[in-house]
């Protein structure tokens, strides 16, 4: 059985330039709660503790957004994304546990699972669900991926979530990876798609066909770059008998569509360039801005970022690389 993990109020915050409001969180959560989605993830686009000049300032604190969600969720679980190096146990995780967050996704770049040990071991002792998340999972070979997933299991994760943060995968890539992790690690597997190449919905289905029991999606695909798998499309084409209520999920889609008409993500020439370059989708606003400032073709900048193997949270490299390109 596949459950749906709704990232609209977290990944979608990228598309909203981190301006997500308490009042929208309340409105959305009240509707999502009865829709049958398993969990609703809330916060800054990069997760707990990442509101910053570097990655964008949140309009509302993590605490206020989570409190608003907590009040509105009864059936669906409240979830957060947290990256060690940004979120700390004392400042972010412990307060979130106390506030009643039920699912913690501890995320690292795909080759750096050991950064998650302290955080996952701490959470595993609390009465919460802990998922280990491997971001930018296209940047490692299969053997490496398996080794990192095994580490996260050892730290106390109850599921391994593979994120296609750059929207680089095609369905076959997803199937191979999900199948391997599912069979070899012996934990639940989740998949988080991005739509850079227009394949997010197909990839979400490929994941669940290959054994993923947690599928990430966002209403209207609201998410970084070209957005995530569109939740309502995946649900509409889920032919099992246990999917969320389509009518209610379409209600979420309409809510997002009417509330944020100027922020809806789509697959564009630029998102295809970034997908092919394998660069974190969340960089799209900076890449467009810096390309304009330095008179560069965004395609060249995406390619250069890909060549430097830039990972998430290296916004400052965009400017530096642009300066180098201009000097050529």
């Amino acid at each position: 059985m596949t459950v749906y993990y709704d990232v609209t109020l977290r990944d979608g915050n990228h598309a909203l330039h981190q301006q997500l409001s308490e009042s929208f969180v309340r409105k959305y959560c009240a509707m999502a709660d009865t829709s049958g989605v398993w969990a609703v993830e809330v916060g800054h686009g990069n997760g707990l503790g990442t509101s910053s000049f570097l990655a964008g300032k949140s309009a509302y604190s993590d605490e206020s957004l989570l409190a608003a969600a907590r009040e509105s969720l009864r059936e669906a679980k409240l979830a957060v994304h947290a990256i060690p190096g940004f979120a700390t146990i004392n400042r972010d995780l412990r307060p979130a546990v106390e506030l009643g967050v039920e699912v913690f996704r501890i995320a690292t770049h795909v080759s750096e699972a050991s950064m998650a040990q302290t955080h996952m071991e701490y959470l595993a002792q609390e009465n919460v669900t802990v998922h280990g998340v491997l971001m930018m999972s296209h940047m490692i070979d299969m053997t490496g991926l398996l080794a990192q997933a095994v580490l996260m299991k050892a730290y106390g994760g109850s599921a391994i979530i593979l994120m296609d943060s750059a929207g680089r995968f095609e369905p076959k890539d997803v199937r191979d990876r999900v199948e391997m992790v599912h069979q070899e690690v012996g934990l639940e597997v989740g998949f988080h798609a991005h739509n850079n190449l227009g394949l997010a919905v197909a990839n979400a289905h490929a994941a669940s066909d290959a054994g993923a029991s947690i599928v990430d999606g966002a209403a209207m695909g609201l998410g970084a770059g070209a957005g995530n798998a569109q939740l309502e499309s995946v649900v509409a084409t889920d032919h099992s008998d246990s999917h969320p209520d389509l009518r209610q999920v379409l209600g979420l889609s309409r809510l997002v569509e009417s509330e944020f008409p100027g922020n809806l993500p789509r697959t564009t020439a630029s998102s295809i360039e970034s997908g092919l370059a394998g660069v974190f989708s969340g960089y799209a606003p900076q890449v467009m801005e810096v390309s304009a400032e330095f008179g560069l073709d965004p395609a060249d900048l995406w390619r250069a970022l890909g060549e430097h193997k830039i990972v998430a949270a290296q916004e400052s490299m965009i400017r530096e690389i642009a300066i180098t390109l201009r000097m050529r």
Binding site: F53, L54, H109, S316
Partner: peptide, 23 residues
């Protein structure tokens, strides 16, 4: 004040960078 740390896995490695912001 806020601090953040990110590990870059590129090989060949990308040298250490430190960005500061002051408002």
């Amino acid at each position: 004040a806020k601090a953040m740390l990110v590990l870059n896995p590129a090989d060949p490695p990308v040298m250490m960078r430190t960005t500061v912001f002051v408002e």
